[in-house]
């Protein structure tokens, strides 16, 4: 277990050793199904995930969770607190929970998360649950990595207008209205349904599941919906198309990561480049030169 934990640290640090590790594990990798959870702070994502872990463990499945929280943009520090809700699974060797700071690195969370998911899959964890606070763009990254994206809402988050502007309608494969023991949850579901009815007809229509996660209510229905979505992806051939697109996206990100690093090195080391940059006042010519001399011509 410690080997896996260490490997994930290397992935998070974007350590060069990761490359060799991933190559070595390539034949072992059985891609895990990835379920993403996102939603505003306090909507109950971690509690729902905790309920799902219990359900999956009854089915004898190994499950891993990557729970992300933001890092401070100023100090880089973070308080990662999603584990608290899942601590009852702490001593179960078939449950692996890892907290990840979003770290604010430019490649974003997705590159580190993708590689961590691959590692967890190689160690036999399936499914992998990816949890992210939806406070900006991180929910889009979840949607880019997850096979099924679950958006969690609760009563009292504001009226239907909030739902249009938050952009959550497009990324959700499944909606959960949690805290269904609270007043107002029916109205949330109603408004959501109204919004979805305005969307163009699609092959998959996101279901709305009511849960009261603290009481473990609705969790089985949620898992059934996730399974149904998975089947939909497989039967329509969208699964393989998605896999191909993601591999391409990831490759582009890896290229961008290497290029960005070389460009920073070049700008840091070559004072002539900085001088020209200041003279030009625009980045394009210098960027072309860096691409020519430092990226395309190097090994």
């Amino acid at each position: 277990m410690r080997a896996l934990a260490r490997a994930i640290t290397l992935v998070e640090r974007r350590d060069p050793a990761v490359r060799e590790l991933q190559q070595a594990l390539r034949d072992r990798v059985r891609p895990a199904y990835v379920v993403g959870f996102t939603g505003a702070p306090g909507t109950g994502k971690s509690t729902i995930v905790d309920g799902l872990i219990s359900l999956l463990r009854k089915q004898e499945r190994s499950v891993a969770v990557i729970a992300t929280d933001p890092n401070s943009p100023f100090t880089g520090g973070a308080i990662l607190g999603d584990r608290i809700r899942m601590q009852r699974h702490a001593l179960d060797p078939k449950v692996f929970i890892r907290s990840m700071g979003a770290r604010g690195h430019l490649g974003g969370l997705s590159l580190a998360a993708r590689e961590a998911i691959r590692l967890l899959g190689a160690f036999g964890f399936d499914p992998v649950i990816l949890e992210t606070v939806g406070v900006g763009q991180s929910e889009l990254e979840v949607a880019a990595v997850a096979d099924t994206t679950v958006v969690v809402l609760t009563p009292n988050l504001g009226d239907g207008v909030q739902m249009i502007k938050a952009g959550i309608l497009e990324i959700a494969d499944i909606f959960v209205v949690n805290k269904s023991d609270l007043e107002g949850h029916k109205r949330v579901a109603l408004e959501l349904r109204g919004m979805l009815n305005l969307s163009p007809k699609a092959a998959w229509r996101p279901p709305i599941i009511a849960t009261a996660a603290v009481r473990q209510e609705g969790i089985e229905e949620l898992w059934a919906a996730i399974e149904a979505h998975r089947k939909h992806l497989e039967t329509t051939g969208r699964a393989s198309a998605q896999a191909e697109k993601r591999l391409k996206d990831e490759t582009a990100e890896v290229v961008a990561e290497v290029a960005r690093e070389r460009a920073r090195d070049a700008l840091g080391e070559d004072s002539k480049l900085s001088q020209r940059l200041l003279q030009d006042g625009t980045p394009y010519e210098v960027a072309d030169e860096i691409l020519r001399n430092h990226i395309m011509n190097s090994e």
Partner: peptide
Amino acid sequence: RDAGYEVIYTG
């Protein structure tokens, strides 16, 4: 956290 550490709070 404010000093730049990643704190995982387990409760």
